[in-house]
Amino acid sequence: MLDTLRFILNDALNLGFAYGLLALGIFISYRLLDFADLTAEGSFTLGGAFVAALIFNGANPFLATLLSIVVGFVAGIITGLLHTKLKIPSLLSGIITMTALFSINMILMGIGKTGKFDSAVYLGNSKTIYDYIGIFKQKYLNIIVVNFLVITLATMFCYWLFGTEFGMSLRATGMNQKMARAQGINTSFMIIIGLGISNALISLSGALTAQTNQSADCNMGVGTLVIGLASIIVGEAIFGKRSFLNWIISVALGSVLYYLIIGIAINLGLDSYLLKLLYAILIIIVLTAPFIKKGFMKLKRKES
């Protein structure tokens, strides 16, 4: 039984850290920039398809992973440009990029194969970044270590970035565009770069996931937007957002918590079609917890 507990914890850490990058990325667009960015599902798959295609064709996995950050950044910039320069509404801008990425991902996954496209890449025995880290004997522990390092670096980077002049201006843009412009901030530029950074993180998340699963396919991004948002909400509710540092850590850890809950559910033998109902119930519990707490404290005061 203790074994099961350990396994669930391992899985939650493994997946949670990788998806934590996704949560951070979505946090930047949804919470900081107040921009409902639907590009996420496309850029997650982009990161995975890109890295898998490169590794499949013999590239160095570390280089491929680093480059996946760049392609994600570009995807975000495109959405930003569509919205700021072509005045396309934000939701639609994200959808347009995401749709275009579907085709691009198919083309990427076909590189080095006989067709012009493919819908999946299987990495089989190609080496991923996890194969180069030999700290532990068991591979899954190595994956956790690497993912932990990456999410920690990403979180530190975000904390630093949003404390700089540039970062503050970006946050101001998300809160109040008119006021930001009145303070001399180029809001268009902020949105473009902000979306770029957001999707760069999401793409990196996809790249790590593809290497963990040793495969990438055109549907790997499905549902990631919901996972990201749910992670943010769960993280904020449980760990709070009293300071910016607190907030950002809560978001990064939210994914771990999210996968902990799912892991428990699966191990309890819950049928998979019931899982969705479980998430809904959990989110309700998590969001109403503060009200229940207040009610509880009121009762206590009445008694005393």
Binding site: D3, F7, L15, T212, G263, I266, S272, Y273
Partner: peptide, 20 residues
């Protein structure tokens, strides 16, 4: 039995659980 109904993340979790 495990059936992730196409959800990629659940597929991974279920695979790990079964394998153990």
């Amino acid at each position: 039995f495990e059936n992730p109904e196409g959800n990629p993340a659940n597929m991974q979790l279920m695979a790990k659980t079964l394998v153990r």
